[in-house]
Design a protein around this nucleic acid. Structure first.
Length: 739
DNA sequence: GAGCACTGC
């Protein structure tokens, strides 16, 4: 295509006269030939410096990528179409090359615009940006940068190619719904269907209709491409064009079992040992579902492998077994990169490394040198039950797409083998094509608040790629209405607008925003931060008693929330003592994270004039903190009836989680979480006074309208006593709930 | 008397 042919979608771009060495480049009319010329040129067109020797070396490597061979085709499609769906399998080079191609055609640096490329994970955004900065011969954080939570590695006015997490782009959309800063937005790994990617797809489809100058590229794996093409058919119902690039991996031979395996862990261990005895050199990756299962399997494999080695040292090599899951400390996660054990002597069989991992090795971490994959076909998946408002984790069969991804892990460095511990018939007939997108498996309270803030009026009719269950949306709207983030018509309130700005669950955001009224926002800020990071309590298997003792010393008897506050404060007071965390069995990593979150939330508080107040100390302060908790969590209250607790309104029977630090079983408790594991537990619990429920959450505790229950009778008595105490001075002063 | 699949803001 030449500059003389028709301009795309009616926007008249002007030729840029003096943009040497991009002389003659017309935005979005650029050809592969022009770009190849610029790539091979002497001067870097993006900073006008001479290309380095390093640049030329990397360029030679880039030219061997499959995507490079299809540059002509890419520019043809990009010139003609506003939205493109791209399929590029592992090793195609799409994530690093396509955004660069786009820069050459879009010329964002000459137009004051940016090209964005989203990633589902922080590490990916960071490492890809680093690589691309090297490839483009520029400094990371200048022309090419990245933006992730807690770290903005970009320079306004200079950066024109930005890698970012999908959540970060969604945040930006809240304050700029048309995303006007961007000339092209590339959604990478769209097939993973994270909540943020799904919402972005819905938003961007609308933005693309309003902004003819915006280009979109949706990059995904093969199986989903058609769905996205159809979804993005905005022009006369013709599907969005597909641009496809082959991958570059080694073949993986797939084996199935003849019959279904009744016990997948046992079968997995047996298969690993079979590979160890019978197959050639090469490491093994085994997928299991969780920490306990993995540690258990590692122990058993180790015992059996040592037995084999003792019985016949010439027949098998030594074996090490390495567990891998996200809650392992980073130093232990690094062990997966250790070399396999060396042979006993030059003639004996090679050593072998076995990695036993959760799904973390399916997408987040890649390990080179894996030749054998053992796939039992299960993973823990989040499910949401809107009826009882509970998210839980369930061991479930994986999807075909997931199985394919797992198998692919065997072919990264050389041809490999994948042993599936299910039958081929089950694979074909029983496994779903795709894992259900997150939006269908989550509590959407947060998402709904974001969407309303983004200006979406009708949540049910929003153009979702996959629409969530109406009941899930209703649950979210109901919660937000009770929290006074939405009015009765579903419009965003002033309070809701501020809540949406905090990267928090709505309950936590509400509690933080109202906490200055209770003169304890400093303390609530800490508690909210501690609730936003993983568990801080460490409990090593061989030191459980010591860990429990240490925890008891930090515990505040009637409130797990106050205990969290106490841990944070003690940690701060002892910040000079390097061993404090270790000696007290708390996670240094989690506490640092909490501190980081705390600083971010504090800056948001400043932006929205939420005062940071702390008045008094001891029991009086503690009481005000517990009252503030009620303002966010009044819907998560349980009352003790005989031996169990029963949740308010839902009437779910629950028990206190064993990690709970309460020394008695008070009548009324508020809880942070309902966890459904072996039994229905409530976790992170604080004693509350029922009077606060009536006063601070009057619209929810509209007890006259409740169906008869023990809780209702009890609350009626509380109210009577309150009124009696006032001796005819009228009802208690009800704090206004709805705004 | 138990957990924490994995991400993200």
């Amino acid at each position: 295509m030449t500059a003389a042919s028709s301009t795309p979608t009616g926007i008249g771009f002007k030729k840029i006269p003096n943009a040497v060495p991009l002389h003659g480049f017309v935005p979005r009319m650029v050809t592969a030939k022009q770009v190849q010329g610029a790539l091979d040129g002497d001067v870097n067109p993006f900073n006008n410096k001479p290309h380095s020797a390093q640049y030329r070396k990397i360029l030679e490597v880039r030219k061997k990528l499959p995507v490079y061979a299809q540059m002509t085709e890419f520019f043809e499609v990009f010139t003609k179409h506003q939205i493109i769906v791209m399929v590029g399998e592992t090793g195609s080079g799409k994530t690093t090359q396509i955004p660069q191609f786009v820069c050459y055609s879009d010329l964002p640096h000459n137009r004051g615009k940016l090209v964005a490329c989203t990633q589902p994970r922080r590490v990916a955004a960071m490492s890809v940006a680093k690589r691309v900065a090297d490839e483009m011969d520029v400094t990371l954080g200048k022309e090419v940068g990245y933006s992730i939570r807690f770290e903005d590695m970009t320079e306004p006015g200079t950066t024109f190619l930005k890698y970012m997490t999908d959540g970060m782009l969604l945040r930006e959309a809240m304050n700029d719904p048309d995303l006007n800063r961007y000339s092209t937005i590339i959604l990478d790994e769209a097939h993973e269907r994270t909540l943020a990617t799904d919402i972005l797809m819905g938003l961007l489809k609308g933005v693309a209709k309003r902004r003819q100058d915006l280009r979109l590229i949706i990059m995904s794996a093969t199986l989903d491409a058609q769905k996205f093409q159809k979804y993005f058919s905005i022009k006369m119902d013709s599907p969005a064009p597909l641009f496809k690039v082959p991958g570059r991996t080694h073949p993986v031979e797939i084996f199935y079992t003849q019959d279904p395996e009744p016990d997948y862990v046992e079968a997995a261990i047996r298969t690993v040992l079979m590979i160890h005895r019978a197959e050639n050199e090469g490491d093994i990756l085994l997928f299991l579902t969780g920490e306990e299962e993995i540690e258990d399997a590692c122990r058993k494999i180790k015992i059996e492998a040592d037995d084999l080695l003792n019985q016949d040292p010439d027949a098998v090599g030594p074996l090490i077994c390495i567990p891998l899951y996200s809650s392992l400390p980073p130093a232990q996660q690094q062990r997966i990169f250790d070399p396999p054990p060396s042979r006993k002597n030059p003639d004996s069989p090679a050593g072998r490394k076995v990695i036993v991992s959760t799904n973390i090795a399916e997408t987040s971490l890649t390990i080179d040198g894996i030749v054998y994959v053992v796939d039992p076909g299960f993973s823990k998946q989040k499910v949401y039950n809107p009826r009882i408002r509970v998210e839980s984790l369930l061991v479930s069969p994986i999807s075909k797409a997931s199985a394919q991804q797992r198998a692919g892990r065997a072919g990264r460095t050389k041809p490999g083998k994948c042993f599936r511990l299910y039958t081929e018939k089950d694979f074909m007939k029983e496994l779903e094509d795709q894992t259900h997108p997150e939006i269908l498996r989550s509590n959407l309270a947060n998402t709904v608040l974001e969407l309303v803030k983004l200006g979406v009026k009708d949540l049910v009719r929003f153009d979702y790629v996959d629409a969530p269950a109406p009941e899930t949306l209703m649950r979210a709207l109901e919660l937000l209405n009770y929290l006074a983030a939405l009015d009765d018509e579903g419009n965003l309130t002033a309070l809701g607008g501020i809540m949406a700005e905090f990267p928090l669950d709505p309950q936590l955001a509400k509690m933080l925003i109202v906490s200055p009224d209770f003169k304890c926002s400093n303390e609530i800020l800490t508690i909210v931060s501690m609730l936003s990071v993983p568990n801080v309590w460490l409990r090593p298997n061989n030191q459980r008693q010591e860990a429990d003792k240490a925890k008891a010393l930090l515990t505040i008897p009637d409130s797990d929330h106050l205990t969290l506050l106490n841990v944070y404060n003690s940690w701060m007071q002892n910040s000079k003592d390097q061993n404090w965390s270790w000696n007290n069995y708390v996670s240094q990593r989690a506490l640092s994270q909490a501190d980081n979150v705390r600083r971010q939330l504090e800056s948001t508080m400043v932006r929205f004039d939420v005062d940071l107040i702390s008045v008094g100390e001891g029991p009086k302060l503690y009481q005000r903190i517990r009252e503030a908790l009620v303002c966010g969590f009044f819907m998560q209250v349980a009352r003790k009836e005989e031996k169990e607790y029963v949740t308010i309104k839902d009437n779910q029977k629950v028990i206190l989680h064993p990690s709970c630090g309460l020394d008695t079983q008070p009548e009324w408790v508020l809880f942070n979480e309902f966890v459904l594991t072996t039994r229905p537990y409530i976790r992170t619990v604080t004693t509350v006074n029922p009077e606060w429920l009536l006063r601070d959450a009057a619209s929810y505790y509209d007890i006259d309208s409740w169906k008869p229950s023990e809780a209702k009778r009890s609350l009626l008595r509380v109210r009577e006593k309150l009124l009696g105490g006032k001796r005819g001075s009228g009802p208690p002063p009800a704090k206004k709930q709805k705004s």
